[in-house]
Amino acid sequence: MDSENGYILETRNLTKSFKTPDAPELVVLDGINLAVPTGSTCSIVGPSGSGKTTLLGLCAGLDQPSGGDVFLDGEKLSDLSEDQRASLRNAKVGFVFQNFQLVPTLTSLENVLVPLELTGRSDRREQAVELLQRVGLGDRLCHYPVQLSGGEQQRVALARAFVNRPGILFADEPTGNLDEETSEIIVEMLFELNAESGTALVIVTHDHELANLAGQVIRMKGGKIAERTVHSK
């Protein structure tokens, strides 16, 4: 088991390509090998079109690769059905999106509770409330997303991402839609929660400052890993 090797995420020779009607096959990812140790942080940077988000989607089991394998907490994703992958995501994965992606018809608290409710653990309401208080939204429990600012929405998203104590959290441009001051708060929370819960962080970002906070920085170019930097703590 790879997890026994200490990796929460590992990709082997991962490729993703698309067939196009009039042109040769478009290769978006080409032979990516990546290993993210449990509890560590990793950032993926690179220019637009370099394959960052595609890599994130494949690592999180949101899409199927054209070749190669993804191991998430030791589970080979290509062996799982879509529903089994969904179940794995619920148990092991958290997400933070650039556009927050809160369910607009649910309150802050309900949004945070959804991952728990999906596994029938709706009794952990206190845990959700605590997390919202932890991100400074204890007084906004019953507010709907439209009633919150961008930063507040991202904080709800953070609380939702951590509520089921995931092994790994994928963040796609988590500060991309936020101002500098709010971004700092979010980043701080992200790393604080990572440290507290031992959740590994995989962040896709254009922000070099944010990228350099991670223990491992992967620089993508043309669908390949152009550079890999490991910061010693």
Partner: peptide
């Protein structure tokens, strides 16, 4: 569509 995609991301099955 957005809601469904988010729910799927956080572990909701297609049946659900």
């Amino acid at each position: 569509i957005g809601t469904v995609a988010t729910l799927r991301c956080i572990g909701c099955s297609t049946n659900q």
